[in-house]
Design a protein around this nucleic acid. Sequence first.
DNA 1: TGATATCGCCTACATACGTAGTCGACAAGG
DNA 2: CCTTGTCGACTACGTATGTAGGCGATATCA
Lengths: 122, 122
Amino acid sequence: MRITDAELSVMDVIWAEPGLGAAEVASRIEGKSWSDKTVKTLLARLVEKGALRADPEGRRYLYTPLIARSEHQTSAVGRLADKLFGGRAAPLVAHLADARDLTDDDIHELEDLVRRLKDDRN
Amino acid sequence: MRITDAELSVMDVIWAEPGLGAAEVASRIEGKSWSDKTVKTLLARLVEKGALRADPEGRRYLYTPLIARSEHQTSAVGRLADKLFGGRAAPLVAHLADARDLTDDDIHELEDLVRRLKDDRN
DNA sequence: TGATATCGCCTACATACGTAGTCGACAAGG
DNA sequence: CCTTGTCGACTACGTATGTAGGCGATATCA
């Protein structure tokens, strides 16, 4: 099950604030100037794909994520690793460093992360 | 300019062995059972997108990459980082660790990589 | 030299995706 | 009650993508 770019904008809103109605979601979308119709179409597609649940509330539906943001992030990164790097982590991270200049903070976080991964392993 | 999944299979062949003709590319595609027509369509689309150059050689064309594999890897990782992680590297790597079990080797490579990033910075 | 294989060119077509419009039901306010 | 706004259901439509077929020119082989 794949969430497209447009759908992701919708998921982002609902991950941030689960249980919104369609109109509320539409009003919280940032950056795009979408008609509310567009947002409703995306919501419907996400429900169809099993990414959202639609609970009737009065005359409308409230939308709740069925997949966690983190779950989606993990699977997307995994797919990319497989597609472009034969599933290998290090080359992916190396290209990431090329792609976006890492701040000192980033580097420190990465250091901690690697340390933690190493510790977890033993 | 976006290279799709199907197109990527074609690019992979040409990155591995630049200057192939269409039939050769088709015969080297792994995993898919595509008709040679399919491969030719993908080649044409890649030329159109500016990802490949087609040089006439006798009665056919030889295809050469116009964008490096590494370039594509970098931009794809960058896009993913932006789309899913607000451009931040560390969370991406953390999810990568969740997505694919890292081997000891992976961890060591990451360690080295982070060390190198740190050194480069000073 | 005639049949066959190959090549590029153009066309096709189903499904996905981005983006939105129409319509009928219902709610809310005057 | 009647008008007006809102909601979901359904429909629409252009472009992208995955996958391939047909045609005409040329090369090759018997």
